[in-house]
Design a protein around this nucleic acid. Sequence first.
DNA 1: TAATATTAGTTCAAGTTTGAACTAATTGTC
DNA 2: GACAATTAGTTCAAACTTGAACTAATATTA
Lengths: 146, 146
Amino acid sequence: MSFLKMVRKLVTSYQSLEKLGSKYIRTLGFTSGQFDVIVTLGNQPPMSCSELAEKTLMVKGNLTVILDGLLKKGLINKTPNPIDGRGIIVSLTEKGEETFVRIFNAHLAYLEPLAKSFSDEELTELINNFDSILRKIDNFNRLDRK
Amino acid sequence: MSFLKMVRKLVTSYQSLEKLGSKYIRTLGFTSGQFDVIVTLGNQPPMSCSELAEKTLMVKGNLTVILDGLLKKGLINKTPNPIDGRGIIVSLTEKGEETFVRIFNAHLAYLEPLAKSFSDEELTELINNFDSILRKIDNFNRLDRK
DNA sequence: TAATATTAGTTCAAGTTTGAACTAATTGTC
DNA sequence: GACAATTAGTTCAAACTTGAACTAATATTA
């Protein structure tokens, strides 16, 4: 029964954090989805839509919409994938890179007081906790699919 | 910097769990919002919309819509609050109670393999850690509001 | 106790997300 | 190499969520 208690607390932790984050992200002129995509692209080499969808856990339909928005803002490029004619490669434009650095740092600065309230040991422990949760969910999904 | 790593893993853990849960909840004929409200009401005495909104972290506008849906399904009652003429009290109908028990147990059964992969010690540790995160977010919100 | 501020809940338009159906390209198999 | 099965990405309608404006009732205060 305390499994559910744990899940509820995980959900509440996420929701509180998300609420706090998204409120701020909106003031920067982005939706959480757009922010998610920018941050994901900002830390990695260019990637396909599928990869992006997998990393952000978005459904593909939503990703298309979000990429359209970012394209209109001139923050990303969509170039055909030379290896796979079906696919495209998404990358940040120069403006997109600048935006990434700017909003990422702004976001970081905003959250700094929260970040500083965690010690390194706590963070390490939490990261291990989450890794363990993720592993277990993975296992469950594997069983569930069968 | 590992603060962000921790946050990313928290987000991923939540999203994975949510995805898994909501997929199943849909097969039961409910949205996550509806499920949230039913489960919140199922464990507590009747409460006001404000209280419900606070517990589920929904905005009030959304809660109204969700309650409308549950009302149409005959799962909740809205009765005027005798103490406060502005407010209403939301409670589960008998059908709502039955539904709560049914979907709650079904959900539990579905997740059982996952639940069993956590030991009691792990769960206790996780719960303590989430409590600590929640406390810190609370503190941050208090500072931020000033 | 009248005027003002706050709070409870609703409404509604705009924006976001989902999921299923679709097109086009690639992979696998015989 | 042709045919079926799979995969990449898009489209679109329906559902969901948000936030701001609104009505009505209660608290505050002077």
